[in-house]
Structures are given as C-alpha cells and as structure tokens.
C-alpha cells in the first residue's frame, strides 16, 4: 500500500513528494539537524534529487508531520526488509526548540505503531551516534535496547521488538493517555 497520508494521536503524516523535497533538504542541512546525523555533509540539490529518485517506495516511507496544520518534523521508516520484517525508524525535527514538545512524542509513538501495525514489522532497528546522549536516552525510554553484538566505533545499534513494545507497561500507559487526551 502507498500510505500517502494518515493521522494518529493527533499527528498527520504526509508522505514525502517532489513538492516537499526541497523543504526536506533545507531542514536536513540546517545546524539544528545536520550535526546530529551520522552523515553530516551538506546535501546538494542534485544529490538530494538522486537520492529521492533512487528510493524504493515499497521499503522506504518518509513523511512530513503536522500538528495543528503546522509542519514540525520528518519521520521515516527506511530499509525495510520484507522477509525479516525489520525496518529503521528515524526522525528529525524542524528545529531544536521542538525537542521537548509533546507532539514530537506523539509523532514518535505514531510512527512506531504504524510500523508495527500497518507495515507489520516484527522489530525496528536504529543507529545512533555514541555522542548523541539525548537520542540514546530517549530511544531507550521508548524501549529500544542496545545490540551488544554490533560493533562500531562511532554509533550504537538499538533494537525494539514488537512484543516487547506492546508488553511495556509504561508505554501502554502513555499510549492510553495520548489516545484519550
């Protein structure tokens, strides 16, 4: 399925298109985003377009997210392995000031639910720079666990399994709260 647009927990997800491609590049190259990414070079319009045209849309889902009609971030599930039922979720926000906003959490939970329930993934895998303590702490609280078998000097691999996510009491409580509020 295309999943071009969906809403969950008050957040609307609109799939990346040619119309919004340049906005993505500008956000991605900004000082609020680029230093926290594994790939930190400035991305040119040409390279950005090449990247977009090379995306397999069946295994890579990139969304602009909106809260009260305002775009605030880009959430993605990429590199889906349809046989292993794994994929890599990711997020970056328009600017740093949004890091502590409730709607960014709503976006994170919505994305995880989308991947587990709609895309039927069994586990989600992320890679986080070892220096990005904030992202590490945040993802651990979402239930991700460090893959101790993964060796890399610069970043950790963390895994979130579907059954552990839905069995996590704290997550269940938060989801209940977000769904009713």
């Amino acid at each position: 399925m295309e999943y071009s647009e969906f809403s969950r927990l008050g957040v609307t997800f609109k799939r990346l298109s040619m119309d919004t491609l340049e906005m993505l590049r500008q956000w991605r190259n900004s000082d609020d985003v680029r230093p926290y990414m594994i790939y930190q070079k400035i991305i040119s319009p040409e390279d950005h377009l090449k990247w977009y045209e090379s995306l397999d849309r069946k295994t890579n889902f990139y969304y602009f997210t909106f809260y009260n009609n305002e775009p605030f971030g880009v959430y993605s599930i990429k590199d889906i392995d349809l046989e292993k039922k794994t994929g890599e979720p990711g997020v970056f926000l328009k600017n740093k000031s949004l890091w502590e906003s409730e709607f960014t959490l709503r976006g994170s939970f919505s994305l995880l639910l989308f991947a587990f329930e709609e895309l039927n993934l069994e586990s989600q895998i992320i890679h986080v720079l070892k220096t990005n303590k904030k992202a590490l702490s945040y993802n651990k609280q979402l239930g991700f666990k460090i893959n101790t078998g993964f060796q890399n000097n610069d970043f950790f691999e963390l895994i979130l399994k579907k059954e552990e996510f839905f069995a996590n009491n704290r997550i269940s409580k938060l989801l209940n709260y977000l769904e009713k509020s």
């Binding site: 502590e100 906003s101 960014t104 959490l105 409580k173 938060l174």
Partner: peptide, 17 residues
C-alpha cells in the same frame, strides 16, 4: 539523568491517573 520529554509526559499521565 533519566529526565526527558518522554518522562515529562509520564509525569503528566501519572498526575491524571
């Protein structure tokens, strides 16, 4: 150390419950 935006939401949900 454990404080985050997620913990803020945990506290809000706890106060509600």
């Amino acid at each position: 150390d454990e404080w985050s935006s997620l913990m803020a939401l945990v506290i809000i949900a706890m106060a509600d419950e």
